[in-house]
């Protein structure tokens, strides 16, 4: 594939997916440098593997799963099970302490609950859609959402019920 075609395709896919994948990575890893490394890895795999996706939903699911796996791989290499909250660089645009506090609560979730909570409450996917994306059962999705809710701070109770 010629460079121009590649650039065009990259622009298209970046505009479609980068923000979503960046958020997933940032929530897993806590800093923009690592999140960017993951996105580089994911987009490189996307262009290398030339997977034949049956639909845009299939493509999106592949990107989400690959991002999640890349984040877990990075955490594994660093010898960490989850994000170390002390390392989190909350460079998000927010002066509101409550919002920062809520963000930290989400950061503190174990990885598998974090992705389920993000896909459900932020991206608006259904339980069934999340099950297809993550290749787990619906019951597992429900369990992760329940556990995620239980672990989130009381500030979120009004919203998540």
């Amino acid at each position: 594939m010629k460079n121009r075609d590649l650039e065009k395709e990259f622009e298209e896919k970046y505009n479609l997916y980068a923000a979503m994948l960046y958020r997933i990575s940032f929530l897993y890893l806590g800093n923009s440098a690592d999140a960017e490394d993951v996105l580089q890895d994911v987009f490189t795999k996307y262009f290398y593997n030339k997977n034949k996706f049956s639909s845009p939903e299939h493509e999106k699911a592949w990107l989400i799963r690959t991002t999640q796996n890349a984040c877990l791989d990075l955490l594994k290499k660093a010898g960490r099970k989850n994000l170390n909250l002390q390392d989190v660089t909350l460079s998000v645009q927010s002066d509101n302490d409550a919002r920062q506090d809520i963000l930290r609560s989400v950061f503190a979730l174990p990885p598998k609950y974090k992705i389920a909570v993000l896909l459900y409450y932020y991206n608006g996917y259904s339980v069934e859609e999340i099950a297809r994306i993550l290749r787990i059962s619906k019951a597992a999705v429900k369990k992760r959402l329940q556990r995620g809710r239980e672990m989130l701070k009381p500030e979120l109770e009004d919203y998540v019920q």
């Binding site: 460079n3 622009e11 996105l39 580089q40 919002r99």
Partner: peptide, 28 residues
């Protein structure tokens, strides 16, 4: 409000060009 909080997590505007250079370079 929850969505807005997560929305705050955004890549910087130059990340696109940085990734393009690295990914396109590798993919060739």
């Amino acid at each position: 409000e929850f969505i807005n909080i997560i929305d705050d997590i955004q890549p910087d505007i130059h990340m696109k060009n940085r990734l393009k250079a690295k990914v396109i370079g590798s993919a060739s």
